[in-house]
Design a protein around this nucleic acid. Sequence first.
DNA 1: ATCGGGTAAATTTTT
DNA 2: TTTACCCGAT
Length: 868
Amino acid sequence: MIRMTEPSKITSQSVPDHQPAAGGIAARARASVGPKYLSGLNPEQREAVETLDGPVLVLAGAGTGKTRVLTTRIAHILSQGRARPGEILSVTFTNKAAREMKHRLGQMLGHAVEGMPWLGTFHSIGGRILRTHAELAQLKSNFTVLDVDDQVRLLKQLLQAENIDDKRWPARMLAGLIDGWKNRGLMPSQVPSGEAAMFANGKGGKLYTSYQERLKILNAADFGDLLLENIRIFREHPDILRQYQQRFKFILVDEYQDTNVAQYLWLRLLSQAPSSFTSPRLRGEVDLRSKSGEGDSPQTELLDPDPLSASEARRDPASGAREPKGPTKNICCVGDDDQSIYGWRGAEVDNILRFDHDFPGAKVIRLERNYRSTGHILAAASHLIAHNEGRLGKTLRTEDQDGEKVTVTGSWDSEEEARGIGEEIEQLQRQGEKLNEIAILVRASYQMREFEDRFVTLGLPYRVIGGPRFYERAEIRDALAYLRVINSPADDLAFERIVNTPKRGLGDATVQMLHDHARKRRIPLFEAARAVVETDELKPKARGSLRDLVAQFDRWRAQREVTAHTDLAQIVLDESGYTEMWQKDRSADAAGRLENLKELVRSMEEFENLQGFLEHIALVMDRDGGSEEDAVSLMTLHSAKGLEFDNVFLPGWEEGLFPSQRTLDEQGRAGLEEERRLGHVGLTRARRRAKIYFATNRRIHGTWSTTIPSRFLDELPAANVEITESKGGSAWGGTGGYGASRFDDMEAFGSSYSTPGWQRAQANRNRGQGGRGGGSRGGFEEEASSFSSSSSSPDFGSFSSRRRGPLTIEGELVAKSTGTTSEFSLSDRVFHQKFGYGHVTKIDGNKLTIAFDKAGEKKVVDSFVQRA
DNA sequence: ATCGGGTAAATTTTT
DNA sequence: TTTACCCGAT
């Protein structure tokens, strides 16, 4: 493994201290040297943009202008006339990233960007290629892309057919295995026999095979297939591969550290210059291109004579195939090994670590100037990540001021942690910080609940980022299933999904008999249904509703010819009773689901027709655009990648949670390093303030357990970190004379105060100041003092106690003024945005206790509910 | 066929 | 503590 730990030299020439607000003297000076889109780039960025020939790896640390480099590079290629828009392959992982790039390109180039047909995600581009050559994968070009849910359902059926107990061998597990194989580029025949045998006493490989067969029959592909089938086609049809190799003069890859083996292989194949290996005639074309200045860089002559064999053998041991060898084209991969956090999902950090072996002669450019975070934050993040061994090594630096130190705060338990953070946020808000600039980043999503509860109580607006994506939501998949059945009567999975949604009295028994029928006669379920309603095999009731359903679909299909696809969708949703089903639903999210359905119909307008819509929907739809309201963001560390905030809160830095015990158990040292990278990602999200927390007691799955501060805390540099007191603790902890009344109030109000953890905290509080036990707390304080002497600086302490009292009181007053007049009375029927319908069981000023129909009893501030 | 209760299991999740 | 799934009762 290559190690490149020497920091690259940065000359001491002056650079703008902020990312080009375009207009510094230096910027203007450079502007005269090249096209104006190049002005404002620092020397490394500029090199990354201008090094067009041969393989380039841009190691772009957090906040160093990665996207800027990528988009400017495209602009540069175009403006130099090196390629037309359609000759640049530019891949990202997320639709969001692809959109962002399109947007920024548009700004840079004017409106000429619509013609970047090959800028997209791996999957959407793979899907597009696969549709073009679908028949070579035994598919039709209108094949369906299955989501995970469909995938699992299909596998369940296969397990049943094989008489395998799907309790002992869950379909989900098999789906995971198959997905893993596909991520590694393995077709059924290539799966190492040991692994294939792992599942269901040796039936794993066979199941993979029959799963693939089933997919073809259903005219469907899963996400993995979108790339894997590309690879297969490229290997089996060199002429087709050559066609793409010739088309793509330049390849750009975003977030290269997250690529898996399949994506790597796909890129490998595409990135090779069309070579004489397959066709002598091409020789000429290559030479021609060289002459016109579009050939490969001179470095290619120094190539490892057999660049592929080593990596191929390593990555793809089961494959006897060797890719044709040829010179590497102009591929530019941008990434950051220190932000590789998707190893558990198949990403191979090795891809980036071995880049210059895989792409010999590669030029490696490091972007180390960070334009995001202040000094202390950057130093803390850098020191933390420096504990990793498997990295290429970068040293992030900033010319910004040091700013505030990173704080580390201990609390007694996770509730105190949530309270403390809640108060700090209110304080920041008082100081004029926008809630939009505040984020809480957690390791595991179950940590979010406590914050949500707290914020609901405080009436603090928040928004959860992540969670199920738009098209993964049940209502969206249901709606899509209806449309899929209309579009393709052979789509059994879609038919099965909606045959009894809404309830039509067509249960398992009916579906089972349809299956039998379909299998016997080798026809799709839908056709089986059509046949079965003509017989009297079904009970009259089921027969009737099934006949109606078939008739409805026939009608919709007929309407399809004469109705716009958006209208058709609306008609289907209404006539099927699907809309009505949610209208009648009383749960909290019913309204949101109806809204989502509207959004779905609206989004169809962007497509020509139903077919086009269905082809792209699975790949292009993502989470709905966040609302514009000012709110705190709550998300996992994973979903924070790529985002940035002025203020970042990082709770739960405890052994077992972060780093996650499970990752440690399963992945060992590699897992630890990935967790550490996660910490690095978290810290580098912060522009001005990063605040870390740990609790001594945490409730995990309902039971309390004592935890030890995370080892990562010890790895933070003393000089950049400050240890502070938990304010959540001292607020009720009796310092400052005000605590007692506040405490009483809280106790009366919050049910959480009777938990064992709190009781322990209370007992402990009597022993030490502010809830602190006498120092026997996981040994953190001893270690803490070794890296900072500024434990709870007097300044901060007096500041906070001086400010806290009045502030909180003001908060009370504000809250009371809105509700003391008791808008509500006992047993009123109310609706809450998050918890749905319920009735009031208790009133305490503006605070209501409400028994929700679905969410149980909760306490909320009255301004958050409305009369139902 | 559907509802309700009881029980096991429980990160992270770009497509 | 919650949630998803299975089984038994209606």
